Simulated scan of single mutants.
Amino acid sequence: MLESDHCRPGMTSRRRRRQESRETSVARILGAAETLCAIHGSAKTNVCDIASYLSMSPANVYRFFPSKLALYDALVARVLEDTFPATRSGSDRKLSAATLREFFGGLHRGFLALMRDEEKLFELLTIADDEHWPAFEAHVKRVRSIVAELVEAGVREGEFRQQDSLRAAECLCTSTAALWEPKAIKTFHLRRSLITPEELISFSIEALRNGALPC
């Protein structure tokens, strides 16, 4: 028992180094996947390409990701985190409606920038959205949770009518989906030329106020 206690600090240090080494390897693999996908697209980039880019064997890549799908799902999570690093409810000093407008506007601008500047990576997000990959589903849940917090704050302050915040968040996210879901955002500006994103967001938020019909 005493010997075990004596060895524990060294064992902890080794575990920490192994964990750091694993995190470094995962980051390198995802970085290579992002670089190649941005150039060639996910359909034309496979595990062998990524391994070759890193001068390692495909088997070494599979040590960290059991499949190509698992690797690309992790890449989707990385792209979403890099694009929306501050996905949170925002300052409590602002009215909930104003914060909601900023929040959905930020989502829209972020996806528009990806679609414009990183077309191949945006295509990957579109696939992840369409096929309900875990990373994109987690992003959707995070967005819905933030919106629910803001709705609840608005109800508490009397800015919005009494309502179920989770149901209201679901309604609001659905009504603005064309602005921040990759599979829908591509056609928004083509098919809805009479309204702006800001007008759609404001119109949807108005349903949260007193006198609006419950969703």
Score class of each variant (00 low, 15 high):
residue 169 A to S: 14
residue 80 L to I: 12
residue 197 P to I: 05
residue 31 G to F: 08
residue 62 Y to L: 11
residue 140 V to E: 13
residue 128 A to Q: 03
residue 118 E to F: 09
residue 205 I to C: 03
residue 46 N to A: 11
residue 200 L to F: 01
residue 174 T to H: 09
residue 176 T to I: 11
residue 159 E to F: 09
residue 126 T to K: 14
residue 125 L to P: 03
residue 187 T to W: 12
residue 113 A to V: 11
residue 136 F to N: 02
residue 129 D to N: 15
residue 106 G to D: 11
residue 99 T to A: 15
residue 87 T to F: 12
residue 82 D to I: 05
residue 95 L to D: 08
residue 103 F to A: 06
residue 59 A to M: 06
residue 41 G to C: 01
residue 93 R to S: 11
residue 47 V to Y: 03
residue 38 A to S: 14
residue 136 F to H: 11
residue 151 V to H: 01
residue 150 L to N: 06
residue 175 S to I: 05
residue 163 Q to I: 01
residue 166 L to E: 08
residue 41 G to H: 05
residue 11 M to E: 13
residue 64 F to A: 04
residue 31 G to Q: 02
residue 190 L to D: 04
residue 28 R to C: 08
residue 159 E to G: 06
residue 121 L to I: 12
residue 68 K to Q: 09
residue 103 F to I: 07
residue 14 R to T: 13
residue 87 T to C: 10
residue 190 L to H: 09
residue 177 A to C: 11
residue 195 I to Y: 12
residue 5 D to A: 07
residue 27 A to L: 11
residue 95 L to C: 05
residue 13 S to F: 01
residue 148 A to G: 12
residue 184 A to M: 15
residue 33 A to Y: 08
residue 134 P to F: 04
residue 160 F to L: 13
residue 163 Q to Y: 00
residue 32 A to C: 03
residue 5 D to Q: 06
residue 103 F to N: 04
residue 133 W to V: 03
residue 164 D to F: 01
residue 155 V to E: 04
residue 11 M to H: 06
residue 54 L to D: 07
residue 132 H to M: 10
residue 170 E to F: 02
residue 88 R to H: 12
residue 113 A to W: 10
residue 195 I to F: 10
residue 8 R to G: 00
residue 176 T to N: 14
residue 119 E to V: 12
residue 201 I to P: 05
residue 84 F to P: 03
residue 86 A to E: 14
residue 11 M to Q: 14
residue 33 A to T: 13
residue 40 H to A: 08
residue 43 A to D: 15
residue 172 L to E: 06
residue 98 A to D: 10
residue 62 Y to N: 04
residue 203 F to D: 12
residue 82 D to P: 00
residue 69 L to W: 00
residue 72 Y to S: 00
residue 137 E to T: 13
residue 148 A to Q: 04
residue 14 R to Q: 14
residue 4 S to N: 11
residue 20 E to P: 00
residue 4 S to L: 15
